[in-house]
């Protein structure tokens, strides 16, 4: 850590930290007093490295002021060339976290990141692939309420052996209340979540008038459902297909329209219990 000024010229303790996650190394430059607003670890499954490598790509998170003098927070670096700003420090921290996660997901060659929600059910991973705003976070919350263990509402992380690793997004609590609230039972940071074999893949599409009509997916259709949500499939298609093929060896795939999350979660649980 070094003394310095932030992007807007305000004095403070400027720091540069280097992290590694899934074989991707990156740096974060920020002010020391902004660090408590970021989750720890910054990337689930990642770690801070002791050395400071000046050559790695850096993300930046600083205060700034608009032309009219309003305080804002700026986020830059990674795969997006632009600088994003937010009027609220929590919102800016979310932007930074998402940006870093996207970067790691796109660059990692050790694992395959699929945009999906994941819970554990009876020792297997239940995966719901889907893009942003598809309602998968809601569905994952509803499944958790029925007893499933939360693994991720952002990415399913597949390793070489086809097992799925947890990628739990942590709550960002305001420092002024974090001393009162340690964690939430369904999203306990740091809890040991072992990697799992894939049990089920649900290709779901939300519709308010949906009728639950699950249809079995073939292995190939299941693989396509995952490929359509895989972050780095264009850059490393062979690796992706081989990892996912291994993962789906004994998985069951189903596809349906779904209605409200709570009802859909009950239908999913009933379905997998019936399938044994």
């Amino acid at each position: 850590m070094t003394g310095g000024v932030d992007a807007d010229g305000e004095p403070g303790e400027k720091i540069r930290l280097v992290y590694s996650a899934y074989g991707v190394v990156f740096a974060l430059e920020t002010m020391a007093d902004l660090l408590p607003y970021l989750p720890s670890p910054l990337v689930p499954g990642g770690e801070e490295l002791p050395e400071s490598d000046a050559s790695v790509p850096a993300f930046r998170f600083f205060r700034a002021h608009t032309e009219t003098g309003e305080l804002i927070f700026s986020v830059a670096g990674g795969d997006a060339a632009d600088t994003e700003t937010a009027p609220d420090v929590i919102a800016a921290a979310q932007l930074l976290e998402s940006r870093i996660h996207r970067y790691v997901a796109a660059e990692s060659e050790q694992v395959v990141f699929v945009h999906a929600g994941v819970v554990a059910w009876r020792g297997k991973a239940l995966i719901v692939p889907g893009s942003s705003h598809s309602g998968k976070s809601t569905l994952i919350a509803a499944l958790t309420a029925l007893g499933a263990t939360y693994y991720s509402d952002e990415y399913a992380v597949f390793d070489f052996d086809g097992r799925v690793h947890a990628f739990p997004r942590q709550l960002r609590l305001r420092p002024d209340i974090s001393h009162r609230i340690a964690s939430h039972p369904s999203r306990t940071p740091g809890i040991a979540l072992v990697s799992l074999p894939v049990g089920w893949v649900f290709g779901l599409r939300y519709s308010p008038d949906a009728a639950w009509k699950p249809k079995r997916l073939t292995a190939g259709q299941m693989l396509l459902t995952l490929l359509g949500n895989t972050v780095a499939v264009r850059r490393q298609s062979e690796l992706t297909v081989s990892f996912l093929k291994r993962a789906l060896g004994s998985a069951t795939g189903l596809q349906s329209e779904r209605g409200e999350a709570a009802l859909a979660a009950e239908q999913i649980v009933r379905m997998i219990e019936e399938l044994g």
Binding site: A105, A106, S132, G228, V231
Partner: peptide, 20 residues
């Protein structure tokens, strides 16, 4: 199926979105 770009598959929260 169309293979997405990282941005297509990613979780963008740069604007006020329902996800955020």
């Amino acid at each position: 199926v169309l293979a997405p770009t990282p941005a297509m598959a990613g979780s963008a929260v740069s604007k006020i979105t329902p996800g955020k």
